[in-house]
Amino acid sequence: TRRLSELRVIDLRAELKKRNLDTGGNKSVLMERLKKAVKEEGQD
Rank of each mutant, 00 (worst) to 15 (best):
R8E: 14
T23D: 04
K39M: 11
G42C: 03
K27S: 08
L34P: 12
T1C: 12
L7T: 08
L16V: 03
K36P: 05
S28W: 09
K36G: 12
D11S: 03
N20H: 05
T23Y: 04
R2I: 07
K27P: 10
Q43E: 10
Q43P: 09
E32A: 12
K18S: 10
G42H: 15
N26M: 05
D44L: 06
A37P: 02
S5F: 04
N20L: 06
R19C: 01
E6D: 14
L16P: 06
L7Q: 09
V38W: 14
K18D: 03
L12K: 01
G25E: 05
R2H: 15
K35G: 14
K17M: 15
R33L: 01
K18M: 06
G24M: 12
M31Y: 07
K17F: 02
L7A: 11
L34E: 14
L34G: 09
M31G: 02
K18V: 10
L34R: 04
L30P: 07
K17I: 02
E40P: 04
R2D: 15
N20P: 03
L21E: 06
K39C: 11
A37I: 03
V38T: 12
L34F: 05
V38C: 07
T23W: 06
N26E: 15
R2K: 14
R19H: 01
E40I: 10
E41K: 02
A14W: 12
Q43Y: 05
M31W: 01
L4R: 08
L7P: 07
M31R: 08
R19T: 03
D11G: 02
K27C: 06
E40M: 07
S5H: 10
G24W: 09
N26C: 08
I10F: 04
K36L: 10
K17W: 06
E40S: 14
V9A: 10
R19M: 01
K39H: 15
L4Q: 08
L30E: 11
K35Y: 01
N26A: 12
I10T: 15
E41R: 05
L16C: 11
K17V: 11
V9I: 05
G25D: 01
D11W: 04
M31A: 04
R33W: 00
V38Q: 11
R3I: 10
G24K: 10
V9F: 05
L12Y: 02
R33Q: 02
A37N: 10
E15L: 00
L12S: 04
D44C: 14
L34A: 07
E41P: 06
S5Q: 07
L30Q: 06
L16G: 05
R8V: 05
S28N: 09
T1N: 15
K27F: 05
A37E: 07
V9Q: 05
K27V: 03
E40D: 13
E15W: 00
Q43K: 11
L12D: 01
K36S: 12
K39Q: 08
L30S: 05
E32Y: 08
R19F: 01
E32V: 02
E32L: 05
L21G: 02
L4K: 04
G24L: 10
E40Q: 12
R2W: 11
R2P: 05
R3Q: 11
A14S: 11
G24T: 13
E15R: 00
V29A: 13
R3A: 11
D22T: 03
G25K: 01
T1G: 12
I10Q: 15
D44V: 08
L21F: 03
L16I: 00
R8T: 15
T23L: 11
V38A: 09
K27Y: 13
S5G: 10
T23E: 09
L34Q: 08
K17Q: 12
K39N: 11
V9M: 09
A37K: 01
L7M: 15
E32W: 03
V9G: 07
E32G: 09
M31S: 04
E32S: 11
S5T: 09
I10V: 14
R19P: 01
D11T: 02
K27Q: 08
S28G: 12
S5Y: 02
E40N: 07
L7D: 08
L16W: 00
V9D: 13
R19K: 06
S5D: 13
N20M: 06
T23G: 04
G25I: 00
K17L: 10
K17R: 12
V29E: 15
L34W: 02
A14P: 05
E41H: 10
